[in-house]
Amino acid sequence: MQMAAPRLRGMTKREKRSLIQGLLFISPWLIGFFAFTVYPLIYSFYISLTRYDLIGEPRYIGFANYSEIFFEDPLFWQVIGNTLYYVLLSVPLSLGFAFCVATLLNTKIVGRSFFRAVMYIPAIVPAICTSMVWLFLLNIQYGAINGMLQAFNLPVIPFLSNPTLAKPSIIMVAVWATGNAVVVFLAGLQDVPRSLYEAATVDGANGFQQFWNVTIPMCTPVILFNLIMGFINAFQEFTLPYLLTNGGPVNATLFYAVYLYRNAFQFLRMGKASALAWLLLIAVVITTILLFRSSARWVYYGGEK
């Protein structure tokens, strides 16, 4: 404010009028941002310091919710383990898969537009629909995949009903639904100057060398973007574990967001759920900062330092 006040005083009448008009123009967004983002964010932190069941008044209890989460909750560390397993496997696999698909779709193949549209379908179909389809495909007894295995006298696979296989199965579904990343990668690939490939060809680089030394470095800004978005989304994954396994079997797919939801609406622990939400926010922010910091070493910004 100390900085802003003299700046305002130094403004001409026209500049002030222009500022006010500008603020008026963005006021719907500003009002929405403060009312529906900033205020709930601050309020949720206050709630995280209370005991609140949504019915009575919140009662201030200091950091007791945080202490309970870290030192007394028998499920918290299992939930962290499940979530990290999912994040650390699903994000790289999804990005790798999306990048490979985008590279294929960037080549001159017959029906390229059709394949591009097909790859994007999983991203636009509601998650609840895809979950239902995958439930049908993966069921141990009535599922189409196991039906085919049986037809060839192969053993069935308990994809979603076995504690060991449930997490990898959900990761498989997440990797399949990675159309958004494909589109972003495709845009990045089309931005790579042809001249670089021509120069590499003249230098005698083969296809793989061009991919490794031209395509990937030139796409690193897009990879960074997808990596950050991937981590943020994976930390918050709710729909797939909720619909496919509801956190089971024996909590094998009890991910962070599902656990948070249970505390909020099943156990009426809105204070604890808010504390969990804040811890998630901190984890996401730290991950994002680390990725940004590391980006100086591996992201190529076309000559910028």
Binding site: M132, L135, N139, S161, P249
Partner: peptide
């Protein structure tokens, strides 16, 4: 069988 039982309950 626990896996078969869970699978049966996952069927819509």
């Amino acid at each position: 069988g626990p896996d078969k039982f869970s699978g049966m309950r996952q069927d819509q």
